Amino acid sequence: MTDVQKPNGQPGAPSPIVSLPNMRDLGGWRGSDGRAVRPGLLYRTADFAGISADDAKLFAALGVRTVYDLRSKAERAAAPDLVFDGVDDIALDVLADSETAIPASLGGVFADPTLAVELNKKLKDGTAAAAIAGTYRDMITLPSANTAYARFFAGLAGVDRAPVAFHCTAGKDRTGWAAASLLTVLGVSRDDVFADYLLTNDRLVPALKPIFDKFGSEGGDPDLLLPILGVRKEYLASAFEEVDSRYGSIEGYLTDGLGLDASVPDTLRASFLE
């Protein structure tokens, strides 16, 4: 086993843990007043279902003290988080109030890729992509999402201990909004926020080659899986559009949408910017 790579402040750096290909440190992106996000404090990732025993030790060596699990109860039951000594694991079911959200069903596709064949018709007529974009809007409006993200931001603002990691199943949708909204609060440009978000297509999608291959062997077109297993700019744009139309700004989202104190954005900047 090799030592874990220490955070180097390079924005979008590859995952330091091979079996968590969609994991990345949010450090290095330029935020308010040109200050960079501090490395080694904020990690986004997929769940730990595929992590190796050696890599679990590497994750522990990062010093994470709080893990936010944004998955549903069913997802957590199917693939419980690893238990790390001295780490608080906080369950935040973002989509509890949604019965049809595709992101909450990805674990089934990962476990049995043949289930993806059943999505073939929806994929071909575009309804799957539209449904995912709708889920991003739901992440701004659902009571369960507001409760979850309010707790997430309150935790980052001092309720919980840093460094932190946050994840859903694939680490791209619920996690994607958590990362995008946090980076935006920290003053990272919209272009860089999208750049971090779209890295999932470079990191996670290649690691899912067996799922694409299985789908192809069952008669499906592997390219049709990309809207579900990857990310699209318009998905995240849908969430930002919902924030802008309802609250006018990311600060308005935190205060009026999530019910947080007006001091939270400044607290986050003080804590996570160099």
Rank of each mutant, 00 (worst) to 15 (best):
75 E>G: 12
249 S>L: 03
230 G>L: 02
160 D>R: 11
176 G>F: 02
61 A>W: 14
203 R>P: 12
162 A>T: 15
101 A>E: 09
111 A>E: 09
137 R>M: 06
102 I>V: 12
79 A>Q: 05
246 R>M: 11
123 L>P: 15
127 T>K: 03
228 I>G: 11
252 G>Q: 10
41 L>V: 05
22 N>Y: 02
4 V>R: 05
95 L>F: 02
271 S>K: 13
64 V>Q: 07
76 R>Q: 15
122 K>S: 15
114 T>L: 06
144 S>P: 10
27 G>T: 04
77 A>R: 12
65 R>I: 00
136 Y>T: 01
33 D>F: 01
44 R>D: 09
109 V>I: 11
262 A>K: 15
273 L>H: 01
74 A>N: 05
258 L>H: 08
264 V>S: 06
56 A>T: 14
80 P>V: 00
202 D>E: 14
186 L>G: 05
27 G>D: 11
43 Y>C: 04
22 N>M: 05
40 G>L: 13
59 F>I: 10
98 S>H: 03
253 Y>D: 03
52 S>N: 07
151 R>Y: 09
209 K>T: 15
167 H>G: 03
114 T>S: 13
60 A>T: 11
168 C>G: 05
123 L>A: 15
258 L>K: 08
137 R>E: 09
265 P>H: 04
130 A>T: 14
15 S>G: 05
50 G>D: 11
126 G>Y: 14
117 V>D: 08
258 L>A: 02
158 G>V: 12
256 D>Q: 15
154 A>V: 05
117 V>I: 15
216 G>W: 08
230 G>I: 00
110 F>I: 06
146 N>H: 11
93 D>V: 01
18 V>C: 00
83 V>R: 15
271 S>Y: 04
126 G>L: 14
152 F>R: 14
62 L>V: 15
26 L>S: 03
75 E>R: 12
261 D>Q: 10
191 D>Y: 03
205 V>D: 10
20 L>G: 02
152 F>T: 15
259 G>E: 07
104 A>P: 01
9 G>M: 08
78 A>D: 11
160 D>W: 09
92 L>Q: 13
47 D>V: 06
212 F>S: 10
187 G>K: 06
198 L>S: 06
131 A>F: 03
151 R>G: 14
75 E>N: 12
163 P>G: 07
92 L>P: 06
8 N>V: 09
150 A>M: 00
203 R>K: 12
193 V>A: 02
229 L>N: 06
269 R>E: 13
249 S>A: 05
201 N>H: 01
127 T>A: 09
134 G>E: 01
187 G>N: 11
148 A>I: 00
217 S>L: 11
35 R>E: 09
